[in-house]
């Protein structure tokens, strides 16, 4: 095809070929433009302003440049890294929302990955009735979040079930404050998160199914024990799923909102980033500008982490063409 006849003819040809396709994907294009890209841009613009949601008051929209971002790192009481220690000096703020969210992600992501992976390996057999067990382990994931929040809150209540059983086996429960104690709240949160392993387990199971049995047979014939098979075959061949789960895990963990559903959103040791954004934007204040800045900080962090993982992803084995 030469370019004789000009651009006009080329465009016409493209349109003739594509019009049907465009029509079909039109909802997506509109949806992306209106509900994804426009909000994304506006969000960044809002983050450069002091934007008070009431909007009808004077001074409710004032340009601040990067003032919101600076405030987030240096002056915001919940986010600050250092706080006064009562003796005139400063100490590290262990209840900083940044620190709490960071700790949460660093602890739950590996635990979730490893434990759910092991569960999947355990249940990846063809023995009779294995389906039932898979079902039972997945079941907690179907309980609506609000309900599970209530369940855990009452189970770990000082008068609740966990204490009841511990008391029965003789443990002194008066010091066990679970969700309400300064130091015990965080571990309790991690523990209650473990029941969601079933969801990840199902994903692992699907990727494990793609490893052909023949490879295992060959290994067995070569005399490899179960543990060796796990490390040398199963893990390397599931790296693509590990990659996917790692990324979704990071995005999910940094945006956890479940503490709010528990009713403990603002409690000192449990104050997570997503809850902070919600509080700033919708609950106590309506500082849309500041909250948008906070959400962009989150976006930046996720972006950087994702990029890092992609860059160092040479270890991922793609089993098939996508």
């Amino acid at each position: 095809m030469t370019s004789k006849g000009g651009i006009g003819k080329r465009i016409l040809k493209t349109v003739k070929k594509s019009w049907a396709g465009w029509l079909f994907v039109l909802p997506l294009v509109l949806g992306l433009a209106i509900f994804t890209f426009y909000p994304m841009v506006m969000s960044f613009i809002y983050s450069l302003y002091h934007y008070d949601g009431v909007g009808m008051v004077e001074d409710s929209v004032v340009f601040r440049g990067f003032g919101n971002y600076i405030e987030a790192f240096t002056a915001d009481q919940d986010l600050m890294f250092t706080i006064p220690d009562g003796n005139g000096g400063t100490m590290f703020n262990r209840n900083s929302v940044f620190y709490t969210t960071f700790r949460y992600a660093v602890i739950t992501i590996p635990i979730n990955l490893v434990l759910s992976y092991l569960l999947a390996v355990l249940l990846n057999r063809k023995t009779k009735g294995i389906g039932v067990f898979r079902l039972l382990i997945y079941l907690p994931c179907i309980i609506p979040g609000v309900v599970s929040g209530l369940i855990w809150r009452s189970a770990f209540d000082p008068a609740g079930l966990v204490n009841y059983w511990l008391d029965k086996i003789g443990v002194d429960v008066s010091g066990l404050t679970w969700f309400r104690g300064e130091t015990t709240a965080f571990p309790t949160l991690i523990i209650t998160g473990l029941w969601g392993l079933g969801g990840s387990m199902i994903l692992w199971l699907s990727s494990l199914k793609n490893i052909p049995d023949t490879v295992y047979e060959a290994a067995r014939l070569d005399g490899a024990g179960p543990f060796t098979r796990l490390i040398k075959i199963t893990v390397p061949m599931s790296t693509s799923m590990i990659f996917y789960n790692l990324i979704t895990g990071i995005i999910g963990a940094l945006q956890t909102f479940s503490t709010y559903t528990l009713g403990l959103g603002k409690q000192s040791g449990l104050y997570l980033y997503a809850v902070k954004i919600y509080e700033e934007a919708f609950n106590t204040a309506s500082r849309y500008g500041y909250a948008s800045a906070l959400s962009w900080i989150l976006f930046a962090v996720i972006g950087v982490l994702t990029l890092l993982i992609f860059r160092t992803s040479k270890w991922v084995y793609y089993g098939e063409e996508s």
């Binding site: 506006m42 809002y46 990324i247 945006q255």
Partner: peptide
């Protein structure tokens, strides 16, 4: 483009969508 939007934290979009 569509796939890349999966990486967006939903929080970034909630506020402007609400205002919209």
């Amino acid at each position: 483009l569509m796939i890349s939007t999966l990486l967006l934290p939903s929080m970034v979009l909630q506020i402007p969508q609400y205002i919209l």
